[in-house]
Amino acid sequence: MIINNLKLIREKKKISQSELAALLEVSRQTINGIEKNKYNPSLQLALKIAYYLNTPLEDIFQWQ
């Protein structure tokens, strides 16, 4: 199972779901689904999230 800290990191950086979704060219619902662990992002999307949040990938997504 993958645990993610996306919501915590996104809120710490004061970025809304809508703003992050626009940067990543995905829907706000996609961001919401990832934050709620409804599904895991593709590797490409995970890397883009880490890039736009300027945060190491392993700080956002962790195996458990």
Rank of each mutant, 00 (worst) to 15 (best):
R28C: 09
N37E: 07
F61C: 02
T30R: 08
I3C: 07
L6F: 03
L43Y: 15
R10G: 01
K38E: 15
N4P: 02
L43V: 10
Y52K: 06
V26G: 02
S16F: 04
A22H: 13
A50T: 04
I15A: 03
S18Q: 14
L43N: 07
I34S: 00
N37P: 01
K36Y: 08
Y52W: 11
L53H: 01
Q29V: 12
L45T: 05
N4R: 02
L8K: 13
A50N: 01
Y39H: 11
N32M: 15
K7R: 15
T30Q: 09
K13C: 08
R10E: 00
R28E: 15
I31Q: 01
I31D: 00
R10V: 02
A50Y: 02
Y51M: 10
F61I: 03
L45S: 03
N54Q: 13
I60E: 01
E35A: 01
L8D: 13
K48N: 07
K38G: 07
L53M: 07
N32L: 13
K14L: 13
L57Y: 05
A46I: 04
F61A: 01
L20H: 00
N37V: 03
A22Q: 12
G33N: 15
L53T: 04
E58S: 13
E11I: 14
Y52S: 07
P41G: 02
E19D: 13
L8C: 09
E58I: 07
I60P: 01
N54V: 07
I60A: 02
E19I: 08
L23K: 12
L53P: 00
L43A: 08
T55N: 04
N37G: 14
L6V: 05
K13Y: 09
E35Q: 02
I9A: 07
A22V: 10
N4S: 04
E35D: 02
G33C: 11
I49Q: 00
Y39S: 08
L47I: 12
N40Q: 10
N4D: 02
F61G: 01
Y51W: 12
E58Y: 11
A22W: 07
I3H: 07
L45Q: 06
N40D: 10
Q64C: 09
K13Q: 13
Q17V: 14
E35W: 01
W63M: 05
T55E: 11
Q44W: 12
T30F: 13
L43K: 11
S16Y: 04
K13H: 13
S18K: 14
N37R: 08
S18D: 14
L24D: 00
Y51D: 08
K38L: 15
Y52I: 14
K38V: 14
K38R: 09
I3T: 14
Q44Y: 09
N5S: 05
L53F: 08
L53I: 04
N40G: 15
K36T: 15
S42G: 09
P56D: 08
L20V: 03
L23N: 11
S16N: 08
E11N: 10
L57M: 10
I2R: 10
I2G: 05
G33F: 13
L6D: 00
L6M: 11
Y51V: 08
K48C: 07
Y51F: 13
Y51N: 10
N40W: 09
L6C: 05
I15N: 02
G33W: 13
I15V: 11
I49P: 00
L47F: 09
L57T: 04
S27L: 03
K48P: 01
Q62D: 06
L20D: 00
L53V: 04
E19V: 10
N32G: 09
L8A: 15
L45N: 03
A21K: 02
L45K: 02
L24P: 00
K36E: 15
I31K: 00
E11V: 12
K12L: 13
E58L: 10
N54W: 06
K36N: 15
N32D: 15
A22S: 12
N5D: 04
I15R: 04
M1Y: 07
L6G: 01
E19Y: 11
L47Y: 13
S42T: 13
Q64K: 11
R10A: 02
E11R: 11
Q17R: 09
V26L: 06
K36G: 12
K13D: 04
I34Y: 04
M1F: 08
K7V: 07
P56I: 04
E58G: 13
R10N: 01
S27Q: 07
E19L: 09
Q62L: 08
L45C: 05
I49D: 00
I31Y: 04
I15G: 01
A46C: 07
K38D: 11
G33A: 15
L57E: 02
K13R: 11
A46Q: 06
E11D: 09
K48D: 06
K14N: 15
S27T: 11
N54M: 12
S42C: 06
K14S: 12
L43P: 10
D59C: 08
A21I: 02
M1K: 06
D59Q: 14
N4V: 03
W63K: 05
D59V: 09
R10M: 07
N37D: 09
L45A: 03
L20T: 01
Q17M: 09
L23F: 13
K36V: 12
N32R: 15
K13L: 14
Q64D: 14
I9Y: 12
S16A: 07
L20N: 00
T30N: 04
S27N: 09
P41E: 01
L57H: 04
K12Y: 14
V26P: 00
V26W: 02
L47D: 06
E35C: 02
D59N: 10
K48R: 14
Q29L: 12
L53D: 00
K7N: 06
